[in-house]
C-alpha cells in the first residue's frame, strides 16, 4: 500500500469514527456524572405564557416551543435532570445540555453539537465548568462572572443566555417533572 492510500484510509476511518449522534453524546456526559443511571426521555412542551415570560427576562427566544428533558434515576429515585435545547449561533443552532441536581443547581453543562466555523471554543470543558453550581438566581454576565472567548462573542453570549434560560425554566417547572 503506498503512502497516499494509507493517508486516505486513515482519513476515512477518522470520519466514520466521529459520526456519533447527539443522544449518544448526552448519554456519555450523563454517565460521567452519575453512576449507572437509568434515563427517561421526555419531550417537554413549554407553556406559552411561561415561555414568553422567560424570553422577556433573559432577552433570548427559545429555539422551539419544547425542550428535551432527560430524567436521571438511580435505583428508581430521581437524582437529577438534563435539559437539552438549542440556541442560535451566528446562523446555525448550537445544541447544548444542562444537568441540574434536584435543587436546580447546575451540576454540569456541555455543548452536544456545534455547527459553526467560528466560536467552537464554547465546547471547552474549562469554559463550561464556569456554570457549575449556578442556578436561576445567579449572574451570567459575560466578561465578569463568565469569561469571554475572543472570536466567539456571539456563541458565548448565546450559550450563556441559553443556560440561564434553562436554569430559570427549571425553577418554574421542577414540580411538574
Amino acid at each position: 500500500m503506498n503512502k497516499n492510500k494509507i493517508i486516505f484510509s486513515l482519513f476515512l476511518f477518522a470520519c466514520l469514527l466521529y459520526a456519533s449522534g447527539i443522544k449518544d453524546r448526552a448519554f456519555e456526559i450523563i454517565n460521567k456524572n452519575y453512576n449507572s443511571p437509568k434515563i427517561e426521555i421526555e419531550k417537554f412542551q413549554l407553556n406559552k405564557s411561561l415561555k414568553e415570560k422567560i424570553e422577556l427576562e433573559v432577552r433570548q427566544r427559545f429555539y422551539q416551543d419544547y425542550i428535551y428533558v432527560y430524567k436521571i434515576k438511580i435505583d428508581d429515585k430521581e437524582e437529577g435532570f438534563a435539559f437539552i435545547d438549542n440556541v442560535l449561533g451566528k446562523s446555525m443552532p448550537i445544541t447544548f445540555m444542562v444537568i441540574f441536581d434536584k435543587k436546580g443547581d447546575i451540576k454540569s453543562s456541555a455543548i452536544l453539537k456545534y455547527r459553526e466555523p467560528y466560536g467552537g471554543a464554547v465546547s471547552s470543558e474549562d469554559w463550561q465548568s464556569q456554570f457549575k453550581g449556578k442556578n436561576y438566581k445567579s449572574s451570567y454576565s459575560v466578561g465578569d462572572e463568565i469569561s469571554a472567548i475572543s472570536g466567539a462573542t456571539i456563541s458565548v453570549n448565546s450559550v450563556s443566555m441559553g443556560i440561564k434560560k434553562l436554569a430559570i425554566l427549571f425553577s418554574h417547572i421542577k414540580n411538574d417533572l
Partner: peptide, 10 residues
C-alpha cells in the same frame, strides 16, 4: 493556529 482552552484567553 489558535489555542482557546484557557477561559478568557486566546
Amino acid at each position: 493556529l489558535d489555542y482557546s482552552n484557557v477561559p478568557g484567553l486566546l
